[in-house]
């Protein structure tokens, strides 16, 4: 078992997503940066259904009650195990009773902590991902405990830890279903000048600071996906993320590539990005 001494900022348990329930309005959820979690799962030998801990900007302080192997990755984050720094992307042994203290994310936005075998979380609709109000809580809380299995063997490192998307700032996008609604001067704005992340952002969506021209198109409620760029009547662009709702009525002008969703998940308020149209 793992004890939460301090929960950090927006720390939550996430797997690779809750699939199969979008038809009844349940968001997919899952790790914001799936490229990072996917690679870390591979290195430690966990499956996509196993829960990892997602840390945002400021990590938690944790006490481990059983020996296990862990790996930390994604955005580089300060981490000390009983005062010794823990390197990113390396399998590390944690012994019973030891404390792991995270500090700030140094570059990027989201880091991941995995234990061998995954955190033992009661699944809700076949997934361990925390999403309130489907699960009791949306984030880790102080004094909460999280289960995991004791594991004390060497794990051979078969896959190298290398994540090139962390430094990227170009988001590859496809035309969305309502791409044609974009005015020509907005097209120029979209693809030839940078955008900055607004402060309105969470696991549901990320707003961009620079607006396009206003419009009055609305559509019959229709499916939206993580990575869908919604174009609101006031001209604002909102990129839906993993906890985003399953349907919407704003024009869906662009769709991020799967990779671009993970790239964007690592950006902070004020960071600059550029959009690149594919095909």
């Amino acid at each position: 078992m793992l004890e939460v001494i301090h929960p950090g900022l927006y720390t939550s348990l996430q797997d690779m997503g809750r699939y199969g329930f979008r038809e009844i309005g349940v968001p997919v959820s899952g790790a914001m940066d799936q490229l990072s979690l996917g690679l870390l799962n591979k290195i430690i030998g966990n499956t996509p259904k196993m829960a990892a801990m997602e840390m945002t900007l400021l990590g938690p302080k944790l006490r481990f009650q059983a020996t296990t192997r862990i790996i930390i990755g994604g955005a580089p984050i300060q981490a000390e195990l009983e005062g010794r720094p823990v390197p990113m992307g390396q399998l590390t042994r944690v012994r019973m009773g030891e404390e792991l203290h995270f500090g700030s994310v140094q570059q990027g936005c989201r880091s991941y902590l995995l234990v061998k075998g995954g955190f033992q979380v009661k699944k809700v609709l076949k997934s361990s991902s925390q999403y309130f109000p489907l699960t009791d809580k949306g984030f880790l809380r102080k004094r909460m405990t999280v289960g995991y299995k004791t594991f004390d063997r060497e794990i051979p490192m078969k896959t190298a830890y290398s994540l090139s998307h962390l430094e990227e700032s170009i988001l590859e996008v496809y035309r969305g279903p309502e791409f044609e609604l974009l005015a020509s001067k907005d097209l120029e704005r979209l693809f030839f000048r940078p955008f900055h992340l607004a402060k309105e952002q969470d696991r549901m969506g990320i707003q961009l600071q620079e607006p396009l021209t206003t419009h009055d198109h609305s559509l019959l409620t229709s499916a939206v996906l993580p990575g869908t760029v919604q174009y609101t009547p006031s001209g604002k662009l909102i990129v839906l993320m993993r906890d985003g709702q399953t349907t919407g009525g704003y024009p869906r002008v662009l769709q991020l590539s799967e990779r671009a969703i993970s790239v964007l998940a690592q950006k902070r308020v004020g960071d600059s990005i550029r959009l690149k149209l594919l095909r």
Partner: peptide, 15 residues
């Protein structure tokens, strides 16, 4: 595939 239907559309989402 997940199938999200509403009003005048059906979205098929693959893994």
């Amino acid at each position: 595939a997940e199938m999200i239907g509403s009003y005048n559309s059906l979205c098929l989402v693959f893994s």
